[in-house]
């Protein structure tokens, strides 16, 4: 993925950019699929930001060879992944395992989504209730004189109010 950094135009070091293509043969189609899936989810330790399927680093080629060998020998995915992790650590997994360390990563967004939807629900209900209250409640809540030049949002200067009205009027006329 060093190549991709160049998209952002600041890597000046010499580099080569070649697709990693090797002509492996597979005994059946499911093995081939498994090979592509596994190499696509394992990160190349040498080139840092590339999976071993795409990287043209020699180490990635070695790792592809190992994955190919193990897939053809019928090793299950889990043991192939273990093989990599015992050698290179959790770093090689582009799909981090769900552990206490990664709970925030995996579940955090959903918790946030839940909170967000709850807030939307509360706000909407709140606003609907306020509808029945008198309009001037907003005026009393605002704190006058808090900051210099501050006026509550609905208090336009007369000119601005007029301008806005004109704008809105024009739109209706359209």
């Amino acid at each position: 993925m060093i190549k991709r950094l160049c998209l952002w135009l600041f890597l000046l070091a010499p580099l080569s950019a070649t697709a990693a293509i090797d002509a492996y043969e597979f005994s059946n189609e499911s093995n081939e699929e498994r090979f592509h899936e596994l190499t696509g989810e394992l990160r190349c330790p040498k080139c840092q930001n590339q999976n071993i399927a795409d990287s043209d680093a020699p180490l990635a080629a070695d790792l592809r060879r190992e994955v190919h060998r193990m897939v053809e020998e019928g090793e299950p995915d889990a043991s192939i992944i273990d093989f990599m992790v015992t050698r290179y650590g959790e770093f090689v997994l582009y799909r981090p395992r769900v552990t206490a360390t990664t709970w925030l990563l995996w579940y955090g967004p959903f918790v946030l989504l839940g909170i967000g939807l709850l807030v939307v629900f509360m706000i909407s209900r709140n606003r609907r209730n306020r509808q029945t209250l008198s309009e001037n409640s907003t005026a009393t809540e605002a704190q006058p004189g808090q900051t210099e030049g501050y006026s509550p949002s609905d208090n336009l200067t007369p000119e601005e109010a007029e301008r806005l009205n004109k704008l809105l009027q024009q739109e209706k006329d359209q």
């Binding site: 040498k46 180490l59 070695d62 050698r87 290179y88 650590g89």
Partner: peptide
Amino acid sequence: EGTLGLDMGVYG
């Protein structure tokens, strides 16, 4: 063949 290197997790 680099087999020992692989088993040791040599990456460069």
